[in-house]
């Protein structure tokens, strides 16, 4: 399984085969929420902070 390193703690984050740009991942080591910003190569950024109007 492919993986990528967390930009916060550098821990290894496994990637599903169908990982998508825009997807939100949670680092299993430090709990950071990360957004996949590109796929080739996979790059991560910190996920946007929750806004007041976010939800369902």
């Amino acid at each position: 399984m492919a993986s990528v390193n967390c930009i916060e703690c550098e821990g290894e984050i496994p990637l599903e085969e169908d990982v998508m740009a825009g997807e939100i991942l949670q680092c299993p080591h430090c709990g950071s929420e990360l957004e996949v910003v590109s796929l080739d190569p996979v790059k991560l950024d910190l996920a946007p902070e929750v806004q007041e109007d976010w939800g369902e």
Partner: peptide
């Protein structure tokens, strides 16, 4: 139309 892809969006895409 989306902003961030959550588990729900991926399930809908899979379908």
């Amino acid at each position: 139309l989306y902003a961030n892809i959550r588990v729900e969006e991926k399930l809908l895409f899979k379908e």
